[in-house]
Computed example of a mutant assay.
Amino acid sequence: MKRLLLALTLVTVFILSGCNKQDQTLEEKLDTENEIIIEDTKEYLKNIFTGEDIEQEKIPFFVIIENSKMARPHSGLSSADIVFETLVEGGITRYLALFSKDVEKIGPVRSTRPYIQDITVAFDIPFAHCGGSNQAIDLIKRKNLKSINEMYNSSYFFRSKDRKAPHNLYTSSDKLRDYISKNGYTNRYNFNMNFDESIDTSLESASIIKIIPSKYTYSEFRYEDGKYLRFQDGKEDIDILNNKQINVSNVLVLFTDIKDLNNESKHVDVRILGRGNGLLFKGGKVEKVTWVKERETDHFDIRNEKGLRVNLLKGNSWIYIIDNKSQVIY
């Protein structure tokens, strides 16, 4: 009888133990299933300059940034939504960078030119700079442009001790947004480009791009893992703020007329209004495009050879405005 009771006890323990294991396995399975079906229910906004999801919309602004050799490496450029690059005097280029993110150090900041300001008008976004050509300053006054000039607003900029002037002037998103808020600049900004993830596989491949705006400087982009890694004069273009190589999703080249003004400062004039040809690089492919900008308040209207407006890939963009005679090799 004792043996029978012992056997029944062992069987019962075994059965209960098996049930516990089954229940545990079922619970683990349910936990795993629950983890799989959990969804992010947070509602996101769209960054109109990149097409990306953002949690909070922040005041955007432009900064005019120097690109001489003494200005490199730059600070904050990797965080820009859009960078326009075009020629200034001496065969060097200058950047007009648009930011909507928080960036603690941006620069070096340099002076403005009339054709650079022609780009900002369409966006209706304030631009930070330090002085400018006589014509540019005159246009700011006459047209009441949204200028943030360090020469009259030095508290919204700062000097870095690790570089010599004039290559050591910087600003930040906090400082510029503070200025914008205090001075009542409206935030009626806009942009006309759309974004998607489609790539026309029938287009010509272009994984390495070399852009030569003058005989004094050139840039390269190499397509890797969905991004174009940027090189400047044969070297990796590093953002010293995060020690990372600058990369973008889209590279757009717009050809125009650039002429020497033959003045003492050797300034040039870049035609921003009118129309011209261009090249759009995205997803390792290249597409021939045309651009039209009839009025200052118009954005560049970019269309393909079929006359359809092109879309950009989601992410940041680098836009060159170079002379019709400049070389682009790919």
Rank of each mutant, 00 (worst) to 15 (best):
L6A: 13
T9C: 06
Q22M: 09
Q22S: 07
D23L: 12
D23P: 00
T32W: 04
E35R: 11
E43T: 11
E43A: 05
Y44V: 03
K46W: 00
I48A: 05
N67M: 07
G76H: 08
L77Q: 12
F84D: 05
I92G: 06
L98S: 05
F99Q: 02
I106R: 09
P114W: 03
F123C: 02
D124W: 03
C130R: 13
A136L: 05
I140H: 05
K143N: 13
S147R: 01
R159D: 03
R163L: 05
P166N: 06
Y170E: 09
L176Y: 01
I180G: 02
Y189E: 12
Y189W: 14
F191M: 13
D196S: 15
I199N: 04
E204V: 15
I211N: 03
S214C: 07
K215C: 03
Y218G: 08
E220W: 09
Q232Y: 13
D239E: 03
N242V: 14
N243Y: 09
Q245R: 06
N247S: 14
L254C: 04
K266Y: 11
V270M: 09
G278N: 03
G278K: 04
G284D: 11
V286I: 15
V289P: 02
T290K: 14
W291Y: 10
E296T: 12
N311Q: 11
I319L: 03
I321P: 01
D323E: 01
